[in-house]
């Protein structure tokens, strides 16, 4: 009995340490974003600021092309998630339900392209985009990001569709339903939770993506908040010359939506993420 209690106490200590380690960096960004600029870079730092202000957010809205970056991030994340889920859904149906020649080869092709480092593809892509006039457009970025997310999405959706009893589409086919009707009216409603999960996961991943915007976004038309944040870091000088007030406020604008989404859809996201690894 006594041994059980010690292990319980140890467990709670470890748990407290874990919670602290996860939350501390987020806490640091949060308090920084509400601390007046004048007392922000003080030494030693303050753990519990005594004055809180919204000034940093006000300056963020004024000084950066903040609204453009925000709009671009939303369009980019929404568009990429939508594209990835859409093209993956039809492909996953084919992989899950249809016996066709070279099926495993095609599937392997998708999975192999997922292991390619994206840096090993961007120079030719940049030249192509330059010729097509797709550099610095949100559409161009959406095509790249949606495509990059397709393999994982296909993988997970295929395993979900396999779980739906085959008899359902067979019965529908007997009744004379065409492929489109089966997909839209039978399979899509049945895989709605999986589709929603993958949409949410892909949305978060694109919202957080830096690489493609870094290479392909050159101006206000396409730059996202991730890129805006990186440019703030490199804009001013070293150390205390950097606009930590703006950076922490912008960081909060990027973190809060994803944390809310994670809190709301926690169970779904965990299911989606673990689907591939654990059968």
């Amino acid at each position: 009995m006594k041994q059980r209690r010690t292990s319980l106490i140890l467990g709670y200590c470890a748990f407290a340490l874990f919670v602290f380690a996860v939350c501390f960096p987020v806490y640091w960004i949060a308090i920084s974003s509400f601390t007046p600029r004048s007392s922000l870079l003080s030494s030693p730092p303050t753990y519990f600021p005594d004055t809180l202000t919204l000034d940093n957010y006000r300056r963020l809205i004024d000084s950066l092309p903040f609204r453009e970056y925000l709009t671009n991030s939303i369009l980019f994340a929404f568009g990429s998630a939508l594209l990835a889920v859409f093209v993956s859904f039809t492909a996953a149906y084919a992989f899950a339900r249809i016996e066709f020649r070279f099926r495993n080869w095609f599937f392997a092709f998708f999975m192999l392209t997922a292991t390619l480092p994206s840096i090993a593809t961007v120079i030719p892509l940049f030249r192509l985009y330059d010729r097509l006039g797709l550099v610095n457009t949100t559409q161009g970025l959406v095509l790249l990001m949606g495509s990059a997310q397709a393999p994982f999405t296909i993988w997970i959706l295929t395993s979900f569709i396999r779980q739906i009893p085959k008899e359902i589409d067979e019965a529908a086919r007997m009744d004379g339903a065409g492929l489109v009707r089966i997909l839209v009216q039978m399979i899509a409603p049945l895989t709605k939770p999986a589709i929603a999960t993958l949409f949410v996961i892909n949305f978060i991943l694109s919202w957080n993506e830096l690489f493609y915007p870094l290479v392909f976004a050159k101006g206000l038309e396409a730059k996202t908040m991730t890129l805006g944040l990186v440019e703030l870091t490199t804009s001013a000088g070293e150390g205390s010359g950097r606009p930590w007030d703006l950076m922490s406020a912008l960081s909060m604008v990027m973190v809060v939506p994803t944390v809310i989404i994670v809190a709301l859809f926690q169970r779904m996201i965990v299911q989606g993420l673990t689907r591939g690894a654990v059968k």
């Binding site: 960096p25 640091w28 991730t226 944040l229 994670v262 926690q266 965990v270």
Partner: peptide
């Protein structure tokens, strides 16, 4: 704890990098 696990994943890498860059500063980092 399970909900917490997803937080570092959901924070944009760029934000993580910058938070730690400032947090590890030897004069004003927390």
């Amino acid at each position: 704890g399970r909900a917490m696990n997803l937080i570092p994943w959901a924070v944009p890498v760029v934000v993580t990098g910058i938070a730690f860059r400032f947090g590890l500063d030897s004069s004003f980092g927390l």
